[in-house]
Nucleic acid binder design. Structure first.
Length: 693
DNA sequence: ACGGCTTGCACG
DNA sequence: TCGTGCAAG
């Protein structure tokens, strides 16, 4: 227990910079302070929600076939063997004891009246697109009230801090005459519900309590907002969901599962300790597997409360610096993970298993299945390009295999990747080559004749997805921006886009025009923040006069202008993610943008008289020096900014699109996972590697 | 060598 | 950077 109290007030600093009033602490933080990994102190006052769709695949099928609503039902794939495997089960069916991972036949045994709906099949494999699209519908609604992170096909995190603060300032709960019925149905952990009491009235009192501390009031606002959002989701999509509202992601996630389906649960700070004390360790996210088992068997930890007796150092010795620190923190309800603004997946994949006798035995069957997988992948990449203007740069092939007549069964089939060329035929060709490369390695030196092989699983995936430079910039201009002079540097977006264009436009015949118009479409009927509009014009002018690099730059800039919703009208029934969010999230990860991100240009214009020194406090070798992509710095001064010199309060004044980026620089980073005993690494040493300009 | 198919992330 | 393994749903 001793660590609990210790955990409450010990940490200062970076994590709090979202609060204007506390931003000065960022500057005052001195050497000797302790700051291992991303964390927040437990005075964390964010309002975070986790939204979890109820048996989502079932709901999607029920919307398609309304006669299934209210019925015991399950979604099943591959009806061929033992009635197929269940992947989603309605709550009515769960009452009969039907579980996910049952076979169709088993489900029928315990619940004879269950309705089994098959997952759509395309090219001989399960086709999950309907569920993906339904998930996007939900995300587009949930993203309305705050930063939104698509955590999976049916789960979303929301950072509602700002919305809650705004509500608290403008229309605080204690001023409300009527409270949303859905909000009144909330579960408030720790709220005493006496036997005869009016439950809803108690919830109303809690929500409207004027004596509540600020954190509870913010949480109450969160409860109201989430109730509202959930109603919107239901109205617009017919889907129900459950939600957790808390001060961080971990607690929100715990809470969302506590009352399902179609309910929401809030975790006031005062109830955290009681909640965790007896909470089964294996039910914590990330602890459902080997790590959780290790805690149980090696440390005799069965509940989160059992973790309290271990010092940080002890946990670090066992599990490494990062995991150890993380464990110590989550045991105390501390979790600084940010809600990433990301509405779209980071990769696409298509795969299939070939169990038992269905294992593939020769190249032609591998080719057959690989072709189908690649076709599906290609379609999804096309769709991502059209809807979101993104391209993937890397193609990866995974396979599971074993050798017949061989002793070294433990040898794994290696994954292989290459740069991704668009167009189904190219992807198929490349995937097949990757497979053969993997196969050669898989053989090793073993005797091919004696040792045949079987393939039990194949998958292809596309990753490293980046935004396509597009918008006001004609393609010709765009290509001028990336002459061979760049070849030595890492202009991956450009290089890859070029590939994408040529192959998409010329290999997939009928798509050529579509792609072109997509890229060059510049309908500007959408609303663009004023700082973009004025800047956009400026940048375009600069682009027109400069030669070597500004073509590229202007493309990147103009990416901020124009909207995906203006494109591909025939597909416009689908929800389109917000381009600004999209652009921000892509830019954040792009190695290209590290050196030339729009935010630096923004600073350059705003502070043109006083260039600041900027370095990344934790970025190691990362360099935020702005230089042109061709490496010529002729007319480009070197703009250095030092993070310490940025008044954190200024961040809130920046365009929201930039705030995220800046905060990412300021955020603590993970340390290399070397286990050190006595591991209080000082801030000084943490920063020292990059503190020289 | 079966629960199947996706995703994301940490590690070396 | 690439490839592997873990975890989740």
């Amino acid at each position: 227990m001793h660590g609990w109290r210790n955990g409450l007030g010990v940490f200062n600093g970076l994590a709090r910079l979202h609060l204007k009033s506390q931003s000065s602490e960022l500057r005052s933080m001195q050497k000797g302070d302790e700051m291992p990994v991303a964390r927040r102190e437990s005075s964390d006052s964010r309002v975070i929600a986790h939204i979890d769709m109820d048996c989502f695949y079932v709901q999607v099928e029920q919307r398609k076939r309304p006669e299934l609503k209210g019925q015991p039902a399950a979604v099943v794939q591959y009806n061929s063997w033992k009635g197929g495997g269940l992947i989603a089960v309605s709550y009515e069916a769960r009452k009969y004891g039907v579980k996910r991972s049952m076979r169709g036949y088993e489900a029928k045994e315990v619940c004879p009246i269950i309705q089994l709906v098959q997952v759509p099949v395309a090219r001989g494999k399960a086709d999950l697109n309907a569920y993906r699209e339904a998930g996007s519908e939900v995300v587009s609604i949930l993203a309305r009230r705050g930063r939104c992170e698509r955590a999976s096909i049916d789960e979303v995190y929301l950072d509602l801090t700002e919305a809650a603060e705004t509500m608290l300032a403008a229309a605080p709960p204690d001023s409300l005459e009527i409270v949303n019925e859905e909000a009144l149905r909330s579960h408030i952990l720790g709220l005493n519900q006496e036997d005869n009491s009016d439950v809803k009235e108690n919830v109303r009192k809690w929500i409207c309590r004027s004596s509540a501390d600020r954190r509870d009031k913010l949480l109450a606002c969160g409860v109201l907002i989430v109730a509202d959002l959930r109603m919107q989701v239901l109205q617009d999509t017919q889907f129900t969901c459950s939600a957790g509202i808390a001060h961080n992601k971990m607690l929100a996630k715990l809470a969302s599962a506590m009352n399902k389906p179609a309910q929401q649960t809030a975790v006031p700070f005062s109830s955290v300790k009681g909640l965790l004390a007896s909470f089964p360790i294996k039910k914590m996210k990330q602890l459902g597997g080997k790590l959780g088992s290790s805690l149980q068997t090696d440390l005799c930890v069965n509940t989160v409360g059992d973790l309290w007796q271990f010092s940080q150092e002890k946990l670090q010795e066992h599990y490494g610096i990062n995991t150890g620190t993380w464990l110590w923190n989550i045991a105390r309800g501390i979790n600084g993970d940010e809600v990433e603004g990301r509405l779209l997946p980071k990769s696409h994949g298509s795969g299939k298993t070939f169990p038992g006798p269905s294992a593939l035995k020769n190249l032609s069957s591998v080719q057959h299945w690989l072709n189908g997988l690649c076709e599906e992948l290609s379609e999804r990449l096309q769709s991502d390009l059209e809807h979101n203007r993104r391209i993937a740069r890397t193609l990866t092939l995974h396979a599971h295999a074993y050798k017949t007549n061989s002793s070294d069964q433990q040898v794994k089939f290696p994954s292989k990747s290459c740069s991704l060329r668009y167009g189904s035929p190219k992807i198929q060709e490349d995937a097949m080559n990757l497979f053969q490369a993997g196969l050669r390695e898989f053989y090793g030196s073993s005797n091919v004749i004696q040792h045949g092989w079987r393939i039990t699983g194949l998958s292809v995936s596309a990753s490293k997805i980046v935004a396509v430079p597009s918008g006001t910039c004609p393609i010709t201009k765009y290509f001028q921006g990336q002459q061979p002079t760049c070849s030595s540097s890492k202009l991956l977006v450009g290089d890859c886009t070029e590939v994408a264009y040529s192959s998409v436009s010329f290999s997939e015949d009928e798509d050529a025009d579509k792609i072109h118009t997509t890229i060059s479409n510049e309908d500007s009927s959408i609303q663009v923040p004023s700082y973009y509009q004025s800047d956009g014009a400026d940048v375009s002018k600069e682009a027109a006069t400069a030669t070597s690099t500004s073509g590229r730059e202007s493309c990147l800039e103009s990416n901020l202008i124009g909207s995906p919703s203006t494109m591909s009208n025939e597909l416009s029934c689908e929800p389109k993610p917000d381009l600004h969010t999209l652009d921000r999230q892509v830019r954040k990860k792009s190695s290209v943008d590290k050196g030339k991100s729009s935010i630096l240009n923004f600073f350059r214009r705003v502070n043109s008289n006083s260039p600041l020194q900027m370095h990344n406090p934790a970025g190691g070798t990362q360099d935020h020096t702005l230089s042109h992509s061709d490496g010529s710095r002729l007319e480009t001064e070197l703009w250095h900014y030092k993070v310490d010199d940025i008044d954190p309060s200024v961040i809130d004044e920046l365009p929201p699109e930039f705030q995220e980026e800046i905060r990412a620089w300021l955020r603590p980073h993970k340390r290399p996972n070397t286990v050190k005993s006595g591991s209080n690494v000082s801030i000084a040493s943490f920063f020292s590697s990059t503190s020289t300009p």
